[in-house]
Design a binder for these strands. Structure first.
Lengths: 215, 215
DNA sequence: GAAACCAGAACTGGATACAACATCCTGCAT
DNA sequence: ATGCAGGATGTTGTATCCAGTTCTGGTTTC
C-alpha cells in the first residue's frame, strides 16, 4: 500500500512534502509525538527517508526533536506567534520591494496575468479559483524577488504562521481585493504603496484570525 | 554541567556542527561537491549521520542538493547577497525591539555584564576577548527576544551572510564600540535608538566588507 | 488502595550490507 | 580527434542488526 506515488521525485522529498502537509492540515496535532516507524508505515516508506524528513522539518521549525525521545510537532505560544507575524511582515515587505526593484518582465507579466484571472474569478464568483489565486499571490511575490533564499525563508515563515492559527483556515474570501491592490501597485512600480498595502494586508489578517486575546 | 552537559550530544548534531564549521570556515569551498562517503570518513562517522546533516544544512541554505548528484556548497551571487543582508537587518531590528519590549531581567543583566567585560577588554586591549564578545553580542540579542524561532532563523541568516563574505573575516576590531552603544540603548529601554544603531551598524559592516568585488 | 519498583517491550540512534540506478569517466575503436 | 560502450563511482532506498534509553504495565510493598 504505497501511499506516495511510485516513481516521481525522490522519496525523501515526497516524504517531506507529505509530512509537512500532515502537520499543516492538522492531521497530526501540535504537541503530538511522531515515531519513525508509525510515519514510515503510514507513508509506505522505510525509516530512512522519514528520518531525513524529520531533520528537514526540524530545521524548518515544524518539528522539535528531543534527544532519545524522538520528535514532536511544535506548539507555539502567543509570544512566538507575534514574533512569527512580525518576521513574516518584514520579509513580505522586502519581497515586494525587491520584486518592484528587479522589475523582471516575466514576473510582471505573470502578475498581470494573475490580476486578470482574479478579475474574471470575481465576476464569476469562482471561489475555488480565488483560493488558488491567493495561494499563488504570495508565491509569485516571493519568487519575483529573485532570491531562492528569500523564497525558502518566507515559505518556512508562512508555514509557521499558517500552522499555528489552526491549519486550514478558510477565511480567504475577502482578501483578493487587497491582493489585487498590492499587485497593481507592484506592476505600477510603486514599491512604497505596495509595501504599505502589504503591511496593512497582513495586519488585517492577523486581526481577523488570531487576535490579541490573551484571555 | 549544563542541562545537556553530561549526556554526550548525538553524533548527528556533532556532524551538523562540524560540517557547518567546515563550510563557514571555507575549508570546503563554495561550489564544492560533497560526497557522503568522503565526509563520513573525514569526520569518522558512518554515512547515516552525514545524510541527516546534509538535510539539515540543506534546509539552512548552506548546501544545495541536486537529485542523484548529491549536494554542493552554495554560492550566492551579489543579488542574493543583497537580499540576505536586507533580511538580516530586518530580523536583527526585530530582535532588538523584542528584547527591549520583553525587558527580561536575566537578559538585561547578561547584557550589562557583557558591557562591563567589554569595557575591561578595551582597557586591556584584549583582542581575543573582544572577538568573543562580538560573537556573544548578536547571540544575546537573538536570545533576548525570547523566540526560539527568531534565534534559529537569525542564525541561519547570519551564517549565509558570514559564509559569502569569505569565511573567517577578521575585521571585528572597530565594531565593539557600536555594539556597546546598541547594548546601552537596549538596557536603557530605548528601542528606537537601539534599532537605529543596529541598522547603521549592519550597514557599516556591509560597506566595509562586501564591496562589489567579483573574485 | 496508592506508591515504589522492576522486567520487558518499544523506540531512537547508529552502523552495515546490499540493490537499483543515475552519472561520471576512461579507454577503445573508428 | 570523436564518439560511444561499459565500468567505476555515487546517490538513494530497503532491510537488518545492535546498543542504550525510555515507556509501559504488572507486581510488590507500605
Amino acid at each position: 500500500m504505497n501511499t506516495i506515488g511510485s516513481r516521481h521525485r525522490s522519496l525523501r522529498d515526497e516524504t517531506v512534502d507529505e509530512l509537512r502537509r500532515l502537520i499543516l492540515s492538522g492531521e497530526v496535532e501540535p504537541g503530538e509525538r511522531l515515531s519513525e516507524l508509525s510515519i514510515s508505515e503510514r507513508l509506505g516508506v522505510s525509516r530512512l527517508p522519514v528520518r531525513e524528513a524529520f531533520r528537514r522539518l526540524e530545521a524548518e521549525g515544524l518539528l522539535k526533536s528531543i534527544p532519545r525521545r524522538g520528535v514532536r510537532v511544535v506548539e507555539l505560544d502567543s509570544h512566538e506567534l507575534a514574533v512569527v507575524r512580525e518576521v513574516r511582515m518584514a520579509l513580505e515587505v522586502i519581497a515586494v520591494n525587491k520584486t518592484v526593484q528587479r522589475n523582471d518582465p516575466e514576473v510582471m507579466q505573470a502578475l498581470r496575468n494573475s490580476l486578470e484571472r482574479g478579475r474574471k474569478a470575481v465576476d464569476e464568483d469562482d471561489r475555488e479559483a480565488l483560493s488558488g489565486l491567493n495561494e499563488e499571490f504570495h508565491e509569485l511575490l516571493a519568487e519575483g524577488a529573485g532570491s531562492h533564499f528569500l523564497s525558502e525563508t518566507l515559505r518556512a515563515v508562512r508555514n509557521q504562521a499558517h500552522h499555528l492559527v489552526g491549519g486550514v483556515s478558510a477565511a480567504v474570501g475577502p482578501s483578493w481585493e487587497e491582493h489585487s491592490a498590492i499587485i497593481r501597485a507592484t506592476v505600477d512600480g510603486d514599491a512604497e504603496l505596495a509595501a504599505m498595502l502589504m503591511r496593512r494586508h497582513l495586519a488585517d489578517r492577523h486581526a481577523h484570525q488570531g487576535g490579541t486575546s490573551p484571555a
